[in-house]
């Protein structure tokens, strides 16, 4: 199963360390392979450092791609977290 969806980053500080850590916490709960993409750069969604190197500020768009048996659930949880502005601001 492959899920692809694009999100806009809405929290003021963008994908900073604490937020990225939350993403990794969620991604890591799933068996699916998870990738984050921004401006053509693709990184492993279960690696904190890799997500940080995407350098996503407020307003940037990232595409998440989940591949695997629980891809849909993963996408749903990640989507919720992002739409929720990671519980910040």
């Amino acid at each position: 199963m492959v899920e692809i969806k694009t999100f806009e980053i809405k929290n003021k500080l963008g994908l900073h360390a604490r937020v990225a850590a939350k993403l990794v916490n969620v991604s890591s709960r799933f068996k699916a392979k998870i990738f984050f993409e921004r401006d053509g750069k693709v990184v492993n969604g279960k690696s904190l450092l890799s997500i940080l190197t995407l350098a996503c500020p407020l307003g940037s768009r990232i595409t998440i791609r989940a591949e695997g048996i629980d891809a849909r659930d993963a996408m749903e949880d990640l989507g919720k977290l992002i739409e929720d502005k990671f519980g910040e601001d």
Binding site: A17, R18, A21, V24, N44, K46, S47, L48, L49, S50
Partner: peptide, 16 residues
């Protein structure tokens, strides 16, 4: 504390 969590997460970072 969260910065230490971040450090722990780096420690476990699969790419790292």
């Amino acid at each position: 504390l969260y910065i230490i969590d971040v450090h722990i997460m780096i420690l476990k970072d699969r790419m790292f």
